[in-house]
Simulated assay, not measured.
Amino acid sequence: MTEVKIVADCAASAESAFQYVNDYRNLPHFLHGIESFTPVGDQIEGLGASFDGHIKLGPASLRSRVEVNRWEKDFAIGIRSIKGFEIDSTFLFHPKGDDLCTIDAIVDYRVPGGLAGRALGKTIEPFVKITVKHTTDNLIRQIAEFHRGGDRNSR
């Protein structure tokens, strides 16, 4: 597996950051390269909620079905793929005050074995780095705007 870890301070409470990331409708706004992210069934949050996702990383088009495997209100959201491209991702929200928190985002992904898998890994690696940078910038900015109330009325 390849691990990508982001640790960033955000001008928002841990509660606001959790609330923003927990709303699956926000994912396409902050996750760079995401083509779609849709619920599978009626459950849209909490343990067991499932989603179908499609992301473009350069020339690679990757699909996965993920399930929420960790959900601790205002602290942690974790997902793991149950079908398709293998991914395991966790967001942790650490309070530092009413208007400040630290967000840890840990993403592990695995490409298939063999020649095709190694080729895919080499193809997507530079795009993963770009995606992480853009996603971090987007996420921190959008959570801060949400916390200040700029996005609450649009839902």
Results as ranks from 00 to 15, higher is better:
10 C>V: 01
10 C>R: 00
11 A>D: 00
12 A>M: 02
13 S>H: 04
14 A>L: 08
14 A>T: 01
16 S>C: 09
16 S>N: 14
17 A>T: 01
19 Q>Y: 05
21 V>I: 04
22 N>R: 10
22 N>L: 08
23 D>Q: 06
23 D>M: 04
25 R>Q: 15
27 L>Y: 07
27 L>N: 05
27 L>E: 09
28 P>L: 03
29 H>M: 12
29 H>T: 07
30 F>D: 13
32 H>M: 05
32 H>T: 06
33 G>Q: 10
36 S>N: 06
37 F>K: 03
42 D>C: 11
43 Q>P: 11
47 L>S: 02
49 A>C: 06
53 G>Y: 01
55 I>W: 06
57 L>S: 03
59 P>V: 04
59 P>E: 02
60 A>M: 08
61 S>H: 15
61 S>V: 04
61 S>R: 07
61 S>Q: 11
64 S>N: 03
64 S>W: 14
66 V>F: 04
66 V>D: 03
68 V>L: 07
71 W>A: 12
72 E>Y: 01
73 K>Y: 04
73 K>N: 01
80 R>L: 14
82 I>G: 11
82 I>F: 11
84 G>V: 10
86 E>Y: 12
86 E>G: 09
87 I>E: 15
87 I>Q: 14
88 D>W: 15
90 T>I: 07
93 F>R: 07
93 F>N: 03
95 P>I: 10
99 D>S: 14
100 L>W: 02
102 T>G: 00
102 T>P: 00
105 A>F: 15
105 A>Q: 10
106 I>A: 09
106 I>G: 08
107 V>W: 11
107 V>P: 08
108 D>P: 07
109 Y>N: 04
109 Y>P: 11
110 R>F: 11
111 V>S: 07
112 P>D: 13
112 P>E: 06
112 P>R: 13
113 G>E: 14
115 L>R: 05
116 A>H: 08
117 G>Y: 14
118 R>W: 07
119 A>R: 10
120 L>I: 11
121 G>I: 04
124 I>G: 12
124 I>C: 09
133 K>P: 07
133 K>F: 10
135 T>H: 00
136 T>E: 08
137 D>L: 07
138 N>C: 01
139 L>Y: 14
140 I>Q: 02
140 I>D: 00
141 R>M: 06
142 Q>N: 05
142 Q>T: 00
146 F>N: 00
146 F>V: 00
147 H>W: 03
150 G>F: 03
151 D>Y: 13
151 D>M: 15
153 N>G: 05
154 S>P: 02
154 S>I: 11
